[in-house]
Amino acid sequence: MNIHKVKQIINAEVICGEELLDMNLKMGCGCDLMSHILAHINHDSGSVLLLTGLTNPQVIYTSDAVDIKVICFVRGKRPDDDVVKLANERGVVLMCTQLPLFESCGKLYKEGLRGISENV
């Protein structure tokens, strides 16, 4: 599933990284606990989509640590410019959707995006 498709499914708006939307995603992870991301994302995280309600710079730093390249903020939350700048520097795609976390995850899972424990 590429990012265009994700955008369509959860009606998301791309904040930055417009040129990277062809990137292919295999797994999704909905999480507000950054420590859990550090603990549980182990391999091939270049193809993991992170859905989160947090918009602080630590989301970018944490994603960077485990090589997550695509982040979608839920519940209509938008990060401030500093965070967008950090993402841009690291070639990370940022999106936001009005949907809550559970619904975003559900819609994407239904369309075929797998979970990180399924290890596809």
């Binding site: 507000d32 606990l33 950054m34 550090l38 603990a39 947090l54 602080n56 630590q58």
Partner: peptide, 15 residues
């Protein structure tokens, strides 16, 4: 509130 402090820090480092 900022997504940390879930008690995973040291176990994570060990892992």
């Amino acid at each position: 509130e900022m997504g940390f402090g879930a008690g995973m820090g040291l176990p994570n480092i060990k892992n």
